[in-house]
């Protein structure tokens, strides 16, 4: 099963390598990882999506918590999860394909960022599954290049995962 971990860390050199090293060392598989600064620039939030059993989840949480730079670890309950990834896709688009691609973009709520004689570059921010779908829909047009971020996530409602509390 897939799990989304939200990890608050001190914004210091070496933190990311400690986290990545821990996953590698303990044979936990990372599907995606995204890091960015939080509302307080002293802290960063690392969002990790990883595959594993309940045992793995428990160990990931506990081992992450042992890292001194890690302030808080939370596994986000799937029912509470709001998540987004960002993808940029450059697809072959000559005159004949353009309108079909624009149709797909419209249905998927994607943006067209760039257009040239032979290509179009599209942007979509959505859940991982919808981005997979979008990619599949564009595949018949011959995708030239994809750049995709890891998942970032928050919980629904008023609850936060923050340094205080």
């Amino acid at each position: 099963m897939k799990h989304t971990f939200s990890v608050l860390v001190e914004n210091r050199a070496g933190v990311l390598s400690r986290i990545a090293g821990l996953f590698a060392r303990r044979a936990f598989n990372i599907e995606s990882l995204a890091v960015g600064i939080t509302e307080d620039p002293a802290f960063s939030r690392v969002t990790i999506v990883a595959e594993g059993s309940d045992y793995t989840v428990e160990q990931v949480e506990k081992q992450l918590n042992k890292l001194i730079d890690v302030i808080k670890v939370r596994t986000i309950n799937p029912a509470e999860l709001i998540s987004r990834e960002l993808v940029l896709i450059k697809v072959n688009a000559g005159q004949t394909e353009r309108s079909d691609i624009m149709n797909i973009a419209e249905i998927m709520d994607a943006k067209i960022l760039d257009i040239s004689r032979a290509t179009m570059t599209l942007e979509l921010a959505d859940t991982s599954e919808r981005i997979d779908l979008f990619t599949e829909l564009l595949r018949p047009f011959a995708i030239r290049e994809i750049a995709r971020t890891g998942t970032v996530a928050l919980q629904k409602g008023t609850d936060t995962i923050s340094v205080k509390k």
Binding site: A13, G14, S17, R18, G21, R25, I68
Partner: peptide, 14 residues
């Protein structure tokens, strides 16, 4: 050395 000793230290500082 902080990198190399990472798996074997509780914490490290450079």
């Amino acid at each position: 050395i902080t990198g190399a000793a990472e798996p074997f230290t509780k914490h490290s500082y450079l």
